[in-house]
Computed example of a mutant assay.
Amino acid sequence: DEDPQSLQFTSENTKGPIKKTLKKIEERHASHELDKQTVVDHNSIRSFDIGKDKLSSVSKQERDKLESAWKEYLSSLNPETKKKDSFYSIKDVVKKNGSGIGSTGLKRYYILIEGQEGEVHHDDIILEAKEARSPIPAYFFPYDEQFWEDNKHQGRRVAHTQHAMHHQADPYLGYFRMDGHDFYVRERSPFSKDLREKNLDDYKKFTQTIKTMAQISAKIHARADADIENGIMDYHSEKAILKAIGSDQKLFRHQLGLWSRYYKETVENDFELFKEWLIEQDYFKS
């Protein structure tokens, strides 16, 4: 019932693992990501620290393709927050390997851009370009021609969604296409941090976390139509969600519980089959 634009979750009004994570973030400096991912040589030139945090170099051909696609990225930026083109000049590019769960196998790049000129490298900014594909659930819903027509560019779809759900969207949020693959771009924020599994070690902490995450999810869905007059979305998302749930919320919770247990069993069975396949392939011996 609260205004989704003013409702915030901070270390003051949260509990348990989320409170602990937010406190850690508050201690960080704006240069955290730069210090973690880059080095400065004796000529005061900053570049990515190859080999660190699963970073690897790109070929000249790949770099050239990215430079060409960068024009589309610049044209996709929000004109109200966009700076002059030189601000986004590419200084270095690397591949990011072996991270993510749902994004396993997708292309991902870290891109170091110039930023504000004249401030001796502390202005450098790290962007992440991540390949975007059609959302898997879309294949399991009834076919909607309008959805596929509106979302021919999957990078645009992701950027469009994030603009809708964030009160203050990332000013670097944009998209481009390269080699037939769609990408969306965002800043590698120094104030991003995962919850640690070791902090979810008892039932109370786990339920505290689930409750807060559910409230955050509700906030961003409510936020998604807060500026409905601007045309980002033309319907109220929370009303659409409630309509899909139906009038019997108890039955919905029961259905969700059944689905969750089935999903858990499927994942465990898939993992056992995967291990059997590895043994058959003599993977462990090689």
Rank of each mutant, 00 (worst) to 15 (best):
96 K>I: 07
27 E>S: 14
164 A>M: 05
34 L>I: 09
229 E>W: 10
219 K>Q: 12
42 H>P: 00
240 A>C: 00
210 I>W: 02
16 G>T: 08
223 R>Y: 00
141 F>H: 12
115 G>F: 01
166 H>P: 01
277 W>N: 08
225 D>M: 01
65 K>W: 12
69 A>F: 04
46 R>F: 03
163 H>V: 07
10 T>W: 09
80 E>L: 14
189 S>N: 09
133 R>I: 12
35 D>N: 14
91 K>R: 07
205 K>F: 03
212 T>L: 14
246 G>R: 07
156 R>S: 07
11 S>G: 10
11 S>F: 10
91 K>G: 01
99 S>H: 09
258 L>C: 05
107 K>F: 09
15 K>C: 11
92 D>E: 03
151 N>F: 09
12 E>V: 08
173 L>D: 00
60 K>M: 06
50 I>D: 01
217 S>T: 11
278 L>G: 05
150 D>H: 12
74 L>Q: 04
145 E>S: 15
116 Q>P: 00
260 S>Q: 06
263 Y>N: 04
28 R>S: 08
14 T>Y: 10
56 S>D: 07
3 D>H: 11
285 K>T: 12
27 E>Y: 03
281 Q>W: 08
128 E>M: 15
30 A>I: 07
199 N>D: 15
153 H>F: 14
251 L>D: 04
39 V>T: 12
195 L>V: 02
91 K>M: 05
188 R>Y: 00
155 G>A: 12
261 R>H: 09
123 D>W: 02
135 P>M: 07
170 D>Y: 10
77 L>E: 02
91 K>H: 03
275 K>P: 00
171 P>G: 08
252 F>L: 03
98 G>V: 06
2 E>M: 12
156 R>H: 09
189 S>F: 02
38 T>Y: 07
271 F>M: 05
286 S>K: 15
249 Q>V: 13
100 G>F: 10
151 N>Q: 04
7 L>K: 13
30 A>N: 04
9 F>Y: 13
198 K>N: 05
176 F>L: 10
53 D>I: 03
154 Q>L: 12
242 L>Y: 07
218 A>P: 00
181 H>V: 11
62 E>I: 05
89 S>Y: 08
